[in-house]
Design a protein around this nucleic acid. Sequence first.
RNA 1: CGGGGCGUAGCGCAGUUUGGUAGCGCGUUUGGUUCGGGACCAAAAGGUCGUGGGUUCAAAUCCCGUCGCCCCGACCA
Length: 578
Amino acid sequence: MKVSQLLGERYKERAADIESQNLMTRGGYMKQVGNGIYSLLPPATRIQRKIERILREEMDRIDGQEVLFPVAMPASLWQSSGRWDSIGSELLRFKDRSGADMCLGMTHEEAAVHMANNIAGTYQKYPFMIYQIQTKFRDEPRARGGLIRVREFTMKDAYSFHTSQEDLQKYYERAYRAYERIYARAGIPEVMAVKSDSGMMGGKVSHEFMLLTDIGEDTIVLCPECGYRANMEAAECTVKNEPEASLKPLQTVFTGAAKTIEDVCLLLGSTPQKSCKAVVYQRNVDDSFVLIFTRGDVEVNETKLTNYLKTAVHPAADLESAHLTAGNIGPVQLMANATVLFDKSLQGATNLICGANREAYHFTGFTPGRDLPEETEYIDLGKARAGDECPQCHRHSIRVSRGIEVGNIFQLGRRYTEAMGMTYDDENGNRVNPIMGCYGIGVGRLMASVCEAKHDQYGPIWPITIAPWEVEICALRADNEEVKAAANELYERLSAKAETLLDDRAVSAGFMFSDADLFGCPVRVVISPKTLARGVVELSTRDKSVKEDVALADAPRRVQELIEELKAQVMEKVPETL
RNA sequence: CGGGGCGUAGCGCAGUUUGGUAGCGCGUUUGGUUCGGGACCAAAAGGUCGUGGGUUCAAAUCCCGUCGCCCCGACCA
């Protein structure tokens, strides 16, 4: 490809909050069409094709069979699993010309079961996995961050079917390994799997593959000592209470206008750790109240709460209708019209400050083990925090980081096959529902994540395996006949061996180099009147690890060598297939 | 869905408070001089001021509606 013919412009200045978005917009990779909707220009399309190729190879390697599900589906398919009603406005619904309800696919469990149903009626067909690479539409309430979070995107989604939990687990391990290979091959081996909450997908075991970066939307809890990793939504809160010998009596104290934990503690010379905090939510379905007591320094993890209640909640709006005194809510002498829950952080705590359920008063000396009924249940509803004890190795080494979810794998179980009546005949002639797993990777998000992880101030540094072109020739002074001829000849020779981009424009060196930085090709060849006078070209890598002069005649061979070296560097980090 | 901001040339923006003939920088085209990290000179092209209505002699500017985009929150396989 010649830059003079390439569609798309590079821009000098463009501001975006996220560096990958900034660089990919400036570099002419993509153009926004609407909120969370993008067109990809040739460079990004080439990257996308290469990522898709890696995905296909790795899915085929674990015995996947590529298929294609529809984008637009009739409501009846989604009604058959119950998700037509359980999923909110994220599912884009519309009517066809006859007035029938339709939707755009945001994930394809239903379509996968529909496809596999009746054609896998005997245990002898199992296990099998089908996958597709296709457009999804999710009507996100808020798209952001360029390709990181969009409404329409290309996704590789895979669905496996099994006759036993053991078989699913075995396959799950293989898929896990395939994912590690995919990220390593895409040039970001640092992606790590974390245990996660499975959300709307249902199922028990699931992992999210995370790229740690400050711009990530997910929060990850990890222990550098033992390797424990979990999504904040799934991470155990491990705060413990030191036993105290002397228990003080429960005592009412006047606290006046002090309402917040901080104010009350300041007033009484205590700390949040020695207090008990009330957090109030309402169930989305009927606005009924849920009251959670935690230790003052522990935050409520809403995902855990939602999972425990099996229904979504929102922070409470109007406390008075639940007979609650905002700022003075406490677990003793409580007359609330609400579900009351106690967080594990209160277990074993002693001599706490808590609300007295009266305007301007609090209690001191609250000891849950003594002052609450014996049958009180303590539930893990708290958020893990940096410095907490690791639930695995028990050192106080927990760290909290931000991350981008670049893929996930779930053990779905029978949720969909049961709901949709998919069965097979087992060895004994019994009709049973198969067990499913599902495995997703967003292609555009992966591309943007690589850019996020691999760039400098001038542009992306694409790994050789997904770079839009492997090598770019910068022909300085392309108006010079000698340069032009030499560059064209080199271009012809290189093109036979590598994906080559030739910048043949008669623009200044700075302009050309800046564009080349934005293209991010791993290998660069500079040819100019100066280099030609010495009979050489300048050869360098985008990551600056190599910079050398090579005789013009040797350039194609040396470029090819460099490309092979760069590929080998990537492949070194790729684990063996399971 | 709640709060805030913004829609003016391909891109980035000024002009709006106080109504009076549409501006700047970058980019683009042409000619010339330069040219190894976003050069310079000269000339030129390019805009229904998001959109609909209203007020007015006169609206980018004031009023009402509407659409779109961005940010914060709610939400999220």
